[in-house]
């Protein structure tokens, strides 16, 4: 059966509190999920009080400041700090988003930070995305053709055809959408999830691709595609304002249309 409660070794206990230094100006409190698999201990939530005058305005700035000044063992992924690499996706105040593009001014009160939901945790805020990436690879996210490429030019595409794939192709694979989806929580071993399905859609509607039928065949499955129950959390949380829910609906529509 689906597990609605965390297993005993995942239940969260109270953590340590790091008080702000005396004379700190603008203090903001962070409650951050901590887990170290090598310690053999259950996860805990640590409290950090941070002087906002000491760092930049984004949640990622605060995390970097905490790691640099208060607790060097705090572990999280980050790279571009401008919303294009997708590394710093985490659950901030109950919503999956990128720490680098989330301003602390937009959040009220204490800031609660957890790893992306319902994924195995490698350490602290770092989820194990192995299955997520494997599912992306499984939809063959590359151009498949039978017609040989023109010897003296690129494979051409009209401006309109390019515009159709322009948005779906902007996915940064941060996993905010898939890990916000209850269907993905319960069945991530078989349901591909919104991110992989959006990628599949991007290649299905690519005017240069010649494997549209095979791609649809591969998706026509009660679990791979049809576990999507149009909950729409994916579209709600996408930090790039993409619409995986609509892409999935379009795939379902194409599967019906090719039957009659």
């Amino acid at each position: 059966m689906t597990e609605f409660r965390l297993p005993p070794n995942s239940r969260i206990r109270k953590g340590v509190t790091h008080k702000a230094p005396a004379g700190a100006g603008e203090v903001r409190t962070f409650r951050i999920y901590r887990f170290d698999p090598t310690s053999g201990e259950n996860p805990r939530v640590d409290t950090f009080e941070l002087d906002l005058k000491s760092c930049g305005p984004m949640v990622l700035d605060a995390l970097i400041q905490i790691k640099g000044v208060i607790d060097a063992s705090l572990t999280f992924r980050r790279s571009c700090r401008e919303g294009i690499c997708g590394s710093c996706a985490m659950n901030i105040d109950g919503v999956n988003r990128l720490a680098c593009t989330t301003s602390m001014l937009d959040l009220k009160g204490e800031i609660k930070i957890y790893p992306l939901p319902h994924m195995p945790v490698v350490k602290d805020l770092v989820p194990d995305l192995t299955n997520f990436y494997a599912q992306y690879a499984s939809v063959k996210p590359w151009l498949q053709t039978r017609t040989p490429a023109p010897p003296d030019s690129e494979r051409l595409q009209s401006k309109e055809d390019q515009e159709r794939i322009d948005r779906p192709a902007a996915c940064i694979l941060c996993a905010c959408c898939s890990t916000a989806c209850p269907s993905y929580w319960w069945n991530s071993d078989r349901f591909l999830g919104p991110a992989a399905l959006l990628a599949a859609y991007r290649w299905i509607i690519d005017s240069r691709d010649e494997a549209t039928g095979e791609r649809l065949d591969e998706l026509e499955d009660p679990f791979r595609l049809y576990r999507c129950h149009t909950i729409m959390n994916c579209t709600d949380v996408c930090p790039k304002d993409l619409n995986p829910a609509k892409a999935i609906a379009e795939i379902k529509k194409m599967l019906v249309e090719r039957q009659s």
Binding site: S138, D217, E220, D221, P222, F223, Q259
Partner: peptide, 16 residues
């Protein structure tokens, strides 16, 4: 392999 697990038993070609 992770890809092997993701591919599983393949598509059921059913659901429409």
């Amino acid at each position: 392999s992770p890809l092997g697990r993701a591919l599983g038993a393949g598509s059921a070609k059913d659901g429409v």
